[in-house]
Nucleic acid binder design. Sequence first.
DNA 1: ACTGAAACAAACCCATC
DNA 2: GATGGGTTTGTTTCAGT
Lengths: 153, 153
Amino acid sequence: MDRIDRKILDLLQQDGTLAVADIGQRVGLSQTPCWKRIQRLEADGVIQRRVALLDPEKLGLGLTVFVCIEVGDHSQDSIDCFINAISTMSEVVEFHRMAGDVDYLLRVVVPDVKAYDVFYKRLIGIVPLKNVCSRFSVERVKSTTALPIDTMT
Amino acid sequence: MDRIDRKILDLLQQDGTLAVADIGQRVGLSQTPCWKRIQRLEADGVIQRRVALLDPEKLGLGLTVFVCIEVGDHSQDSIDCFINAISTMSEVVEFHRMAGDVDYLLRVVVPDVKAYDVFYKRLIGIVPLKNVCSRFSVERVKSTTALPIDTMT
DNA sequence: ACTGAAACAAACCCATC
DNA sequence: GATGGGTTTGTTTCAGT
């Protein structure tokens, strides 16, 4: 994957509606080779998917909460159950297993505090949790799906 | 915005490559009215943009870090400077002002721990910070851009 | 408000150089 | 990788019901 591929990826992660010919022109390639590169990047899974990004506010999903979790029971069964349940909750848009004192970190998107409380009660009902810390966002200053390709060699 | 609009949005946030005719069929609409709805949703900004999602691992961006920050100086000038600097850092893919004891929370995507250290040094050099807590992800169990539309009325 | 069907643009996939 | 052409697919627009 060379510099041109990365430039193509950067363009596409900023604007997925760009025409192949358009992209080709910006990276100094004609249509066919540019199209072939994009095909390859898709086949290789570097381009995972193409999606529409929606405005959470306009959909009444104004609240983002970050949740740090320490589980109470580290047995395989309990963990499996926890991971499975969390993964299928659509309010959970991000779910990470963490290093250090916190076991898991979630990013949760809900309409409001009331809806978060409903979610929270479901969350603590899955398996025993030792500690749960909810941090509420009051302003989404920046939020992007664009990965930092430019900072790379 | 009715049930059909939300169904269209859900389809598009899962797969932005779907043809209008295809979407129409799935929501029980023919091409033209379906197209008009999508146009309206785009004009209204409900659909913010269409992008390609890339695989961070395949791009050598394997490390996600969540950073909780308490600033040391709450003067307007200092805050403005901080917000401006953080917003323009491409490694920062998410940047929230928070309620409670933590002032700001960042999601940072970098190649590795070494690269994070470089970022960290830049971060603490912007303005005086009272406290910075970095939590490292060891596994991205779930990560989606799809908002929970289904849970709504 | 939906249908059908044009007109147009773009993606896709060949050759050949 | 460029060029050019040809097929196919999807978008966009418009007339009709």
